[in-house]
Design a protein around this nucleic acid. Structure first.
Lengths: 163, 163
DNA sequence: CTTGGAAAGTCAACAAGGCTGACATAAGGT
DNA sequence: ACCTTATGTCAGCCTTGTTGACTTTCCAAG
């Protein structure tokens, strides 16, 4: 908005490189806490992602989850099979379209989700608090601009439900 | 700075959840371009990381690289072996301490590094430009606050050399 | 000068989680 | 009746992470 007349020093290669390195190191921190919890349960990040988005969009179909996660159905299926077998996820046959499976977290699944999101939220909260509200707004703006259009659609669709 | 009297609405669980999802989707975009290039060369992200940090800190030792990347030496060694065999990385025995290997990019390695960082930088530049300088400052603040202390030390040490 | 320990490399084995390809089943739509 | 879609599953492969065990090289302290 008010950037046009300003210095463009923030677009130097050096600044951009710092941004990429910050992303790299921050993402490691971002996943560190959940990773520890998941390991105790014999799960990995793939399970976390499935659990997270099933929690966020209960009753989502497998196909929808596939397009959010951007993996193959074989890959997702392996993860879902484990979560269903362990009683964390329930798969219900669709009422209208009986080919579809609608996915839900069981109480056990919701419990693990809570553990994982609590841990991740705490780090996020600390970072947010340390940086302040304006920084957080900027953080989100840049991240959103960095997404591929399809990913941005998913992100915004999820946000719209939640706000 | 000026946040103390402000609304704390930016620290709600909903805002924090959006932050985590933004990180997830943005990181996918962040790695998408280099991933495509790497695939053409038969490499993966592990190779990219090695190449990036060898470029950033030419002559770094294997041990130093290990602690930046946070993987095991066996894992890194596999990657380095391939890069050395393919003539992208050169490993020179230390002058002072001959046990150490100092790592450098060859001209071929530097060429690939340029390709990769050009691609990644273009996406970063577009995101930065779209978001504006204040947003970028906030972006970096939040990311830095999200890092583990050890990762932050690495990040800052690299930044200090470069600025 | 010997010896302990650090730095590095290597081999083997394993697991997670991506991928492709092929195929089966069920059910909706034309 | 036929085609397509949604899902699941089997088999096999790759990358990249892990642990454990072992060797070689070499600095440095005793």
């Amino acid at each position: 908005m008010a950037q046009t007349g300003k210095s463009l020093l923030y677009l130097t290669d050096e600044q951009l490189r710092k941004g990429t390195e910050a992303m790299f190191f921050a993402y490691r921190g971002f996943t560190a806490d959940p990773d520890r919890i998941l390991q105790q349960h014999g799960y990995g990040r793939a399970h976390h992602r499935a659990i997270h988005f099933i929690h966020r969009a209960p009753g989502t179909t497998v196909n929808n989850l596939l397009s959010i996660l951007g993996v193959t159905k074989q890959s997702l299926n392996r993860v879902l099979r484990a979560l269903i077998a362990d009683g964390l996820v329930e798969s219900r046959i669709g009422a209208r379209d009986k080919r579809e499976r609608h996915l839900f977290l069981t109480e056990t699944g919701a419990e693990l989700e809570r553990q994982l999101s609590d841990a991740q939220r705490e780090r996020m909260r600390a970072a947010y608090r340390a940086a302040g509200p304006e920084a957080v707004a900027g953080f989100r703006q840049v991240l959103e601009a960095m997404m591929d259009p399809e990913q941005r659609r998913h992100f915004q669709r999820l946000s719209d439900r939640g706000v």
